[in-house]
Design a protein around this nucleic acid. Sequence first.
RNA 1: GCGGAAUUGGUGAAGUGGUUAACACGCCGGAUUGUGGCUCCGGUAUGCGUGGGUUCGAUCCCCACAUUUCGCCCCA
Length: 418
Amino acid sequence: MILKPKGTYDMINEDAIKLQKINRLFEYFCDFYNYDFIRTPLFEAQDLFHRSVGDTSDIVTKETYDFKDRGNRDLTLRPEGTAGVVRSFIENKMYGENLPKKFFYNGTMYRYERPGKGRNRELTQLGVEVLGSNDPAIDAEVISLPYRLFEELGLKDLNVKINNLGSKEDRKLYRDALVSYLEPNIDCLCTDCQNRFKTNPLRILDCKVDRNNEILKNAPSILEYQSEESKKRFKKVIEYLELLDIDYEIDERLVRGLDYYDYTVFEITSSEEILGSANTIAGGGRYNHLVETLGGPDIPCMGFACGIERLMLAIDDDHFSKKRPLDCYILYVNEEEKMKAISLAQDLRISGVSCDYDTMGRSLKSQFKEADRNYAELLILLNSEDLKKGLITVKDNLTKVETKIDENEIIDYIVSNG
RNA sequence: GCGGAAUUGGUGAAGUGGUUAACACGCCGGAUUGUGGCUCCGGUAUGCGUGGGUUCGAUCCCCACAUUUCGCCCCA
């Protein structure tokens, strides 16, 4: 037997229904926020991710699916969605059009990592990117959209953590201060942190091992190393968030693992009880220099991404995994009735009525069961005797009331009762 | 990438070094020969993850691998 590749997932039954509902709700939200759908390739030039996500992040150093195609090109299955959208923005010269561009996307991402709860090699993300506006109102909007979405989905223990990484210059100042603070004590930190000290010292801040280490607790705060302008900007973001009634928590040690972020970064977490350590379901931030880094003009951007598999774990099954009901189910026994069932089904479907009938040679008794499994609201009982008189029996599956309808009026009857 | 645990049908699971591997759910058929959901009866043919090894004989013991899962790392 051929099995699915490690870390991949078949979305079937309740999961498939849940996935569809999430997608529909997300698109519905995006309409109201005025975001347009964008679809970019599943694979891109390898270089794109090295230059955007950053060479020190784990995602790029050891988690990408890299391959050469038959033309010997170096390609990578996308590990995240932002880089592709930015590439498309630049390549299609959208910076010359009306800004901002507000996009939403939805698709699979690929990261070669050890699978576990809320961690897959093929993961599905939905997200938005706003390109062209540096208004703090956009920061607040991009945080509020997923927040409202999650509220609507009934997620428990929602928590928004937000931080300000400041500008590149701010960050360089802080980085130097942090390095000189940590240097004398570096031996007291865990081995991972000692490595991070060389590659990406800011990441030491949200190390879980050293989380409660006194050295880190007393480390200088990034918020103190920022220009007045950065601070003012962050204050505005907070002010707008409060205006939107979003509960947030400032976490000055929130850093995030992708190199392209500056200014606002945020994460939304849900119940740790359900999700364990993988309880970050959405994250994002501002990336004001990525467009320039990738060869475009100086265009400020902001976005978020949400891991759908984690979101699905966090959603209560009861409300979102019910199969949609069928308008009617047609029951028959002999071939004459079956012919009628087939043509009637066709007519009903064309008239906008969902319906189905048995194709497994089931007994009448079993057809009733099948109708219930499909949550059929009306049962159409075909009977040769009645058909000769031009009559068809319709049974309401809730009240169990049967009505004999003239064959010629059956469509109208069902449409008007549906 | 590192450490732990697990793997028996469509599903949930019991079990044993030796004929036909329980039980339950589900599904199908019948009783009710064309009006179901209850009840009763019967059926349920790719079943002990894969490959080796020990043994007269392995689903059971040993080894390896795979997959799943928990924790670490990282991220969504």
